[in-house]
Every structure is written in C-alpha cells, then in structure tokens.
Amino acid sequence: ENKKPKATRHILLIRHSQYNLNGHSDKDRTLTGLGQEQAELTGQRLATLGLKYDVLIHSSMTRAVETANIISKYIPGIQRVSCDLLREGAPIEPDPPINHWKPDSVQYYEDGARIEAAFRRYIHRAETNQLEDTYEIIICHANVIRYFVCRALQFPSEGWLRMGLNHGSITWLTIRPSGRVILRTLGDSGFMPPEKVTRS
C-alpha cells in the first residue's frame, strides 16, 4: 500500500501568447501588445479558478518566459522553474503531412528526443509520497502540448498536428493515482473576448 500513488495530479498546459514572428532570433521574438493582453487574460482566468497552484514551469524560450512573467503576477508567491526540454520543436513527423512545414530528419531526431524527455519528466501519475492533489502549470508551445496530449491519451503521436491551439489557451490534463488520464479541456480560450483570440 505504501508503494501505491494516492493523489491526483492536475497539469494545466498553457500555450504562450502571440509573439513577434519577425524577430531574428529567439530573444527578439517577444510578445506583441495583443500577446501581453492574452497573457493577462489567461492569468486572470487561472486566478479566477481559485485553485492552489503548486508550481509554474515554463519553457526557456523568450515568448514563454514573458508569458510566465505576466501570468505569475496573478499567482503571487508561486514557485517558478525554467526548463530547456520544453522549448518548441518538431516532435515527430505528422500524419498527414503538411506542405508548408517540412523540418528535416535531423530536426525530428533532435527535437523529438528532447520533447519525449520532457513528456517523461512532467507527465506521469503522482509519486508515492504525494499525499494531496496538486495543480501544476506548464507554459510552453503548441507542438509540445499537442504531442503531450497524444502521448498521454495513448493516441498515435503522429496525429499531433490534427489539433490546433489558440494563443494563451489552457489544456488541462488530470492524471489519477491509478494512472488513468483524463483530458478535461483542450485549448480552452473561451475566457477571452473573440477579438483577442489568435492562433498565429
């Protein structure tokens, strides 16, 4: 009995907000004005849910860091962790493929291993010593979140590109102590006014 998990983990995956696509490098790809508004709305939404959040983990890419900076204002005192494994990339060749985005094999090989490592690090049932339910926020990127969803639900990983996520949206995974996984929401952005909703 001591070796059985007892608690539930709730993982809220947030896609970063809209950012400047024209930046030369990652540090130049900062949030747009609308992106900052989206992050404010997501932060307000998370606060309104009234949950006791345990940790805020974010990708080390600039757009995720800026999104985390804004959201964390609404969750004062929350522990923050930056993670390179959560950086955007090409997790696995999608099926069906699309014409306007074709990374080479090396990209899939490198990014795929890294994103899978991120999945194994963050998406699992509670440890045996966890006694209470936890609520963890992970701020990262669309490809990473979609891949996580496919893997968590044991759907074919190649189907990750069949889903779309809005900027600042919330994807909620619940993992029971039994290992059962429930996708409660996928890409929820209903809390944003329609004119504030973007995908690219």
Binding site: K3, K4, P5, R120, I123, H124, R125, Q154, G179
Partner: peptide
C-alpha cells in the same frame, strides 16, 4: 502485455504491479 489497441496501464513506468 496490453492487448493491441488497448490501454497500457504502465504507460509512465510507475505502475506498482510492475
């Protein structure tokens, strides 16, 4: 072994029985 197409209960390598 999970049946083909079935749910793998040890998907996160944390199933106590394993």
């Amino acid at each position: 072994e999970p049946k083909k197409g079935g749910w793998d209960t040890n998907w996160d390598r944390r199933e106590p029985a394993f």
